[in-house]
Design a protein around this nucleic acid. Structure first.
Length: 217
DNA sequence: TTGTGTTTTACGACCTCC
DNA sequence: GGAGGTCGTAAAACACAA
């Protein structure tokens, strides 16, 4: 009844996920089906529940009748003719009314199930989209870190090259920390016989799961 | 009270199965 | 071919805001 644009979009979305189920909802291109002819409705006698009949007066079933039908539907969604007759006799209804009630109940049940399936799919789709966004931003961050690291490597390489061309360093050369421009940005510590360099690596800097500093080990 | 949207009951058309 | 299913829809019954 309340058919909106959202409904159309939802149906389009579901139809993509369940093409075989929803072929009848979205018109297939080129497949023009002639409209169904509708016959004029026939006014029938309807059992009223108190044993009498009335004509063309649609009556709601009583709560008790509905409860019994619901219980029966809970047991089994299909209605064999024996069960239909028995239920009709128990509830004082026309067997046809029982059959119609089951048809409508099955339709409601199906709609509800489809609605639940749709909501589940919608939720998982939203989760996947959120994951995708998170991973994309993580990738961007990692690319930035990689770019920075490459620039740093390049800077270091240039310094090494500059240092070696200006004053060739041999293993026997003794270096004074405050005098050599090459090491000016680094902490130089006399650790016995060797000099160790400790580059100031930014905190939480990781490349492919390795600490940035590990690249220099 | 009335207009309007939703739910329920009922039916026609069509399909499948035995 | 008949019984019983789905699907789409008409129309009564109902709920509820204005």
């Amino acid at each position: 009844m309340n058919h909106t644009m959202d409904d159309d979009q939802n149906l389009a979305f579901i139809s993509q996920l369940y093409p075989d189920v929803y072929t009848q909802i979205l018109p297939q291109e080129g497949a023009v089906k002639p409209p169904k002819r509708r016959r004029k409705k026939i006014k029938r006698a309807v059992a009223t529940g108190d044993g009498s009949n009335c004509f063309f007066r649609k009556r709601k079933l009583s709560d008790e009748q509905v409860n019994m039908l619901e219980m029966s539907f809970g047991d089994e969604h299909k209605l064999e003719s024996e069960r239909k007759d028995r239920l009709a006799a128990e509830l004082g209804l026309d067997p046809r009314q029982v059959a119609v009630w089951f048809q409508n109940r099955r339709a409601r049940w199906k709609n509800k199930r489809l609605e639940e399936e749709y909501n589940n799919l919608k939720n998982s789709h939203e989760n996947v989209v959120a994951d995708k966004c998170r991973l994309e931003s993580e990738l961007l961050q990692l690319k930035e870190q990689l770019y920075d690291a490459e620039r740093e490597i390049q800077r270091l390489a240039e310094r090494v090259e500059r240092g070696s061309s200006n004053s060739p360093i041999s293993s026997s050369v003794s270096v004074e920390a405050n005098e050599t421009p090459f090491f000016e940005d680094y902490n130089v510590r006399d650790d016995g016989d060797d000099y160790n360099l400790f580059y100031p690596v930014p905190e939480n800097t990781y490349i492919d799961g390795l600490e940035w500093a590990n690249l220099y080990i």
